[in-house]
Design a protein around this nucleic acid. Structure first.
Lengths: 336, 336
DNA sequence: TTGACAGATGTAACTAGTTACATCAAGCTG
DNA sequence: CAGCTTGATGTAACTAGTTACATCTGTCAA
């Protein structure tokens, strides 16, 4: 019924034709409107509106060589620590006109490599990854594409990629030292999977020195509320005595806390509990969880700014160490 | 020192030249390797490796008209309900070779519009938004671009965009009915901001009928653990009596639970507590929170599949109603 | 009156891929 | 041995923008 049988999306040439100007003029209306006379500009804008013209991002990208998209690879979105990080990252990238593509890896280097390939395929300008454990194929891909990559959640001065993160070993050390200084000797340690997880590994290594002198019992479990819960069930089954529990993440600590409440074990009267991360919810649990604060929001900000600088001025950023800080709340107490 | 002073990224033509074949052949090696002789293929692949050639996503997109990127606009990443949704969405989009760009709106229609414009600019093929409250500019943008858009977290048969979500009014009604059936008459309702939030508004409307017959006291607060905590502080200050608290989200319920514990008010002995959402942590709190389960992971899956079908076969999906289901746990009790 | 210059606009060549069509050789059939 | 088919490859025209350079008009000063 219409005059045009094939009504595809309008492009620059269509607009130019209808407005009776050249493609260059339409392009100018879009990109440097002051270079076009008022009259022409208004006419072109009218046609743009009329034809529902929306410039093709791909065509623009092919010329500028910029897609304005950054990719982030995180283990999961189901832990508040990563979603907070991404929230900060997204916010600060958006300030610089960059968008964030998120892909999850389930802590599996193979999935990570596959997803990284997918991100390269859609044309991300840079990549942000978690930790420094990656597959050889991943490293090869990064080398081939020469894409800016930043590793987060982990500080390592001499890693071949710039890192933005905290000293995981010292974070767990801070927590342990606080428990030891409070007179605790028999301590249960609840941590996430060790395999493929350099953050957990580093936190474990932070305890190594103390392990010889003191009684530390390790419990590996999933990083989730449920994981904390089952770890305590396992712990109680061993019938070993302990006066404090050190959790490698506040998510675990919350699970542990709930399970202790269920078992009628008082925190901190009977058992002291300390976590690592400091989630937004941690100050509000009852009792409020003592923890080691890791500035993830700051990490997102620093990562975003490093990427922006890298892209703008080809400067490979220096590794950035974020401070880990003890926050004493009410889930721990001094032993007499 | 090198022969080539300007060493840009290699492109198809460079590879073709070095390998001594035509651009078409290189393109074939990339896209339909079986159409090329073994010998030629190997030679070309060698050159690709040698020159670190990575095909330009933009150039591919310009031809196929597909960027393989989907945009999602969510209020925040700081609430587990949205990160779970995004996790499921990302997973199911990835299964179909689609990537997910995430942008946060802080529940502000203006920010949403701005971010939507950004997503259109980078060339997303479709958009997934939360709720049905959007600015006129947003609607205009969507109309102009004719982009597939799905509204989530909200079911509304007659909305101009397809919706995938639950009946928020009936979710709150389910929770309230359960409290009423358990003999509760004096009920405090803790909910998030009403402004610009159709989910909250719908949940409030679900209580309207009962509001006349029963004593419902409303408390508006931020959707966070802290928000739940302060709501209870405000509630206690009013000195009104109540036997149950209905929270419009489990995040609020957790904050409420912690604060009640701090105030030495027993749940469920003294006060019954019910939430809506059913977070992964909800079964593990002490006591485990009774709640109305909203299948967010399913929502992510359905949204992803709807988008895929829409893009593949131009079929605008039908609105999809997800069931809300009461999960009775241990934070509620029957009044004699 | 001429030259210089600014302002507005157009032409065409770029960007980096895909792909329809043409070409050519080799193998098979009648 | 002509004629047909198949397989492998190349040429060139697309995709949708940007932009260097050319052109044209008009104003102003010399």
């Amino acid at each position: 019924m219409e005059s045009r049988p094939k009504k595809k999306r309008a492009n620059l040439r269509d607009v130019a034709k209808v407005a009776g100007v050249s493609v260059a003029t339409v392009s100018r209306v879009l990109n440097s409107p002051k270079a076009v006379s008022e009259e022409t500009r208004l006419r072109v804008e009218e046609v743009i509106d009329m034809l529902h013209f929306v410039p093709s991002a791909a065509a623009r990208a092919i010329n500028s060589g910029r897609t304005r998209v950054i990719g982030a690879l995180v283990p999961t979105l189901d832990n508040a620590i990563f979603s907070r990080f991404l929230a900060a990252l997204e916010k600060h990238l958006a300030m610089h006109g960059l968008s964030l593509v998120v892909a999850t890896t389930s802590n599996d280097p193979e999935i990570e490599t596959e997803k990284a390939r997918g991100l390269v395929d859609i044309g991300v300008e840079a990549l942000i990854v978690s930790g420094i454990t990656h597959s050889p194929e991943f490293d090869k891909l990064m080398e081939q594409t020469r894409l800016p990559v930043i590793a987060t959640s982990y500080f390592e001065e001499n890693y071949h990629l710039p890192t933005v993160g905290y000293d995981n070993a010292s974070a767990s050390r801070i927590a342990l030292d606080f428990l030891l200084a409070s007179g605790h000797q028999k301590i249960a340690v609840v941590h996430g999977p060790v395999k493929n997880n350099d953050r957990t590994q580093a936190r474990l290594s932070g305890l190594k020195a103390a392990k010889l002198a003191h009684s530390l019992q390790m419990f590996e479990t999933d990083i989730s509320i449920q994981g904390g819960s089952t770890a305590i069930q396992n712990l109680l089954r061993t019938k070993t005595t302990f006066t404090a529990i050190l959790c490698f993440s506040d998510v675990l600590a919350m699970g542990v806390l709930f399970e202790l409440q269920r078992q009628q074990i008082n925190v901190p009267e009977e058992v002291s509990l300390i976590g690592i991360d400091d989630l937004p919810s941690s100050p509000y649990t009852f009792p409020a969880i003592t923890t080691v604060h890791l500035p993830v929001a700051r990490m997102g900000e620093v990562a975003a700014k490093s990427i922006v600088r890298w892209l703008d001025s080809q400067t490979v950023p220096d590794p950035y160490l974020l401070p880990a800080e003890l926050i004493v709340r009410h889930s721990t107490r001094k032993l007499e």
